[in-house]
Simulated scan of single mutants.
Amino acid sequence: MESNHSVLKSIEEYDLLNVDFIFEKEHEYFKTTYTCQYNQEYHETRIFEDYGITHDHTKLLSEKAFQDSIRETEIRTGFRFRECDGGYESRLDDNRYDFLFTDEIYVFARFDMGNGHTAVFEVDLDNLKLSRDYDIY
């Protein structure tokens, strides 16, 4: 595993063979949490069997400028804001099968389009604005 200067916050044993190592990296507007799963019976090329990522956007969502951008996007498009997602990125190194926590950032906002589809806008963290264009899912 290669870190992006994240900090080990806790080690949690959830049964006799499995332990979670919880790492966090904070940004001005979000926090990314990496949960790395160690299994004592796992004997592959990696130390951790698997990992998961979650992001907390509480700080971003409390910023008035970002709230204004959400409101402006809702008025302009007629879509309804649902949630933010994303943060610090990660990937699996194909050569060594290491988990890499990177400094790359991708944050986006999801809006309900009202027709069963979701519009996804990129978040500009420097200006606390949503992109004008979006992808549909």
Rank of each mutant, 00 (worst) to 15 (best):
Y106T: 09
T45V: 09
E63V: 03
F48Q: 08
I136E: 14
R80I: 15
Y34F: 10
L16T: 04
T118G: 01
N95P: 04
G87D: 11
L16N: 12
D135I: 11
R46P: 00
N127V: 02
F21M: 04
T33W: 05
I136D: 11
E28A: 12
Y137K: 10
E41R: 12
E89M: 12
I47T: 13
K64R: 11
G87K: 11
I136Y: 11
Y38N: 11
A65Y: 05
T45N: 09
N115Y: 02
D93S: 13
N4Y: 05
E13F: 08
Y42K: 10
H43I: 08
V107Q: 08
I11E: 14
H43N: 08
T35I: 13
Y137E: 08
I22W: 02
R91G: 07
R82Q: 12
D103G: 02
F81S: 01
E122S: 15
M113Q: 10
D93E: 15
R91W: 02
L130E: 07
E72C: 07
D112S: 15
Y34V: 07
K31D: 03
V107A: 04
Q40T: 13
D50K: 03
Y34M: 05
D50W: 00
Q37G: 01
F48M: 09
F108G: 02
L61K: 07
Q37A: 04
T35N: 08
F108M: 06
E12G: 07
T118I: 02
D56T: 14
Q37C: 01
F108H: 06
R46W: 01
D133L: 05
E26G: 05
S6K: 09
F99Y: 13
V7Y: 12
S69Q: 05
G87C: 10
I75E: 15
S3V: 00
D133C: 05
D112A: 13
Y134A: 01
D93W: 06
E12Y: 14
Y51A: 03
D15H: 04
G116M: 03
D124K: 07
I75H: 09
L61H: 07
G86T: 13
G86V: 12
R80F: 08
F81P: 00
T35D: 07
R96F: 09
V107T: 09
R91D: 03
F23D: 06
F121V: 04
D135A: 10
